[in-house]
Design a protein around this nucleic acid. Sequence first.
DNA 1: CTGAAAGCGCTTACAG
DNA 2: CTGAAAGCGCTTACAG
Lengths: 347, 347
Amino acid sequence: MASSRSGPNLSRIATSLGVSVATVSNALSGKGRVSGQLVERIREHAAELGYVPSQAGRALRTGRSGVLGLVLPDIANPLFPKIAQAIEFAASAAGYGVLIADSRGDVAAQTEAINRLVERGVDGMVIIPRRATRISSAACPIAVIDTPSTPGNTVSADHWQGGREIAGHLAGLGHRRILIIGNNQESSVQNDRVGGIRSGLHSGMHAETLWIDKLERDGGSGCPLGLAERVRQGFSAFAALSDLQALRALTELQQAGVNIPADVSVTGFDDLIWSPVVTPSLTTVRMDMDTIAGIAVSALADAIRANSIRQGVLVTAEIERVAMQLIVRQSSGPANPASKTSEMENM
Amino acid sequence: MASSRSGPNLSRIATSLGVSVATVSNALSGKGRVSGQLVERIREHAAELGYVPSQAGRALRTGRSGVLGLVLPDIANPLFPKIAQAIEFAASAAGYGVLIADSRGDVAAQTEAINRLVERGVDGMVIIPRRATRISSAACPIAVIDTPSTPGNTVSADHWQGGREIAGHLAGLGHRRILIIGNNQESSVQNDRVGGIRSGLHSGMHAETLWIDKLERDGGSGCPLGLAERVRQGFSAFAALSDLQALRALTELQQAGVNIPADVSVTGFDDLIWSPVVTPSLTTVRMDMDTIAGIAVSALADAIRANSIRQGVLVTAEIERVAMQLIVRQSSGPANPASKTSEMENM
DNA sequence: CTGAAAGCGCTTACAG
DNA sequence: CTGAAAGCGCTTACAG
């Protein structure tokens, strides 16, 4: 005996109304030609009974589950809430559910996460790949969110342009020596951001990059970044490649008695949840996750509609770049000529 | 014509091997009595063909989707990554997928999110309810993660005890005047934490509570909390009810030139991702999300196994309280008698 | 130890 | 405009 469902099914509605299941199905879905009157009666009765269509039945018949997978490199990443919310929102609006999968660990874990999702019968998936991973193909349409410099991509924020925004902002404030603070040199997103910043520097400006993971390999996780020393070296602006690093820089500088933004400026990336409420609030660059998620999901939805064959193809050939938006808050301000000069003398 | 699957199905394996689908099914699932030799051959062939069982077919037949729903009040909540990761991990280990749903908005949105999950055929769900919401029942087993003071609960961190840990820690450091900083007076979690802190105060200690949402109703979102003034009033410890508020307090105090922990101590709750890397790193109280998620998921799995009837019942009658763990970092230290005395004189 | 058959709930050509 | 029938892929008693 197969296990029973709690609610009524099409057949129950049909017999109770003296019509066929086909007619009930047609009436409820709005397909087929059913008289307006009957449609009315059927819908009413279905609502009364609290009819909930069985996804399993529908999926088995149509070959579509109505579910999208979301593969993340690490759910614990603080960017995750925004991503998940945007994807869930877009998917939900398009009638899809969202199944999450964490590819914590290495590339093998990512492949495994993708497989698990395929086994669950997702119609397509949004993948935010691990560093330096290339998604080849899977058993369903895939939208990749990464950076424009990853080939075969579908959609991404324009991290390079975001970097230029930061550089332009700091240049306009009169900063000349900029310390870029990144977390991981392998990240293509971070590399794009660095590239953008450097390319946006005005002539006469100087930038160095500090990679935290390298530093921590020696100093241990959470070790000081030595930023006060950098201030003495004449750096007047600290451009972190993520708000998480910006926060770390901000608090380390504050603790050392450096005033932000009077003495030095700090900027970040991503506009994370706490960025507006720290003191001083963080100047940052925001990616429009809603737009990105919307593009990814609708590309996926199109591919699903088109491909009854459901082959493993990337959703588009073209890369869509979504502009990032500079958000100026209080952690950045005019370079302090006095302190800068005096510091320069100390070098 | 129903749409075709990309991969092979049981029937293809069966005909290709000259056996029945029943035998293939039994061999692959390890049920039924199939000779070891045949099992071997079937499994090999299935692997060769890259057979992936159809969840839809299985779900339709068994009445189980193998998917759990996760309902969150707001995915953008910074606690979300830890929760989602823990639930995903526990669910995955138990063989379940996780469908997320955001109940952003009011209670109606929460109900709708739950319904959407039911429509997708989840076997059960983990709900983190909106403030002051009571989950009554749904069409599937439910595990609620909230606070022990919510009736009909399944599992939660012991927020009250967590508050006592903080109070004990601050008392031990010699602090006498404590400002509790909360976000929302309606939150039962936050109220439990406040209650715990107050109950853990030693005699002669004094605590006041500052609710940020109230303050922001007048001052606007992100307005200063006026903590420097509180220092002058003789408060030497700021116990935030979440690391997010602790961070806000920490940076505001630092900006005002108050040294932490030399002048005053700051503590939080939840051990969010950035708490260990800010300067000074944040003393906080951590809930063991892995344990909580594990309990919720296994309670759900048990209920699903037991209830073929799949009625809407809460998973357990008893409340499981999971102890919170104090994590002492650098943002808390001994009360500074000198500054305290001098401040008291100013009152 | 193996297989034939029923049936989970749905949708979709097709016939009337 | 309405209905009978097939079939999506699976599992499970049951018969052999």
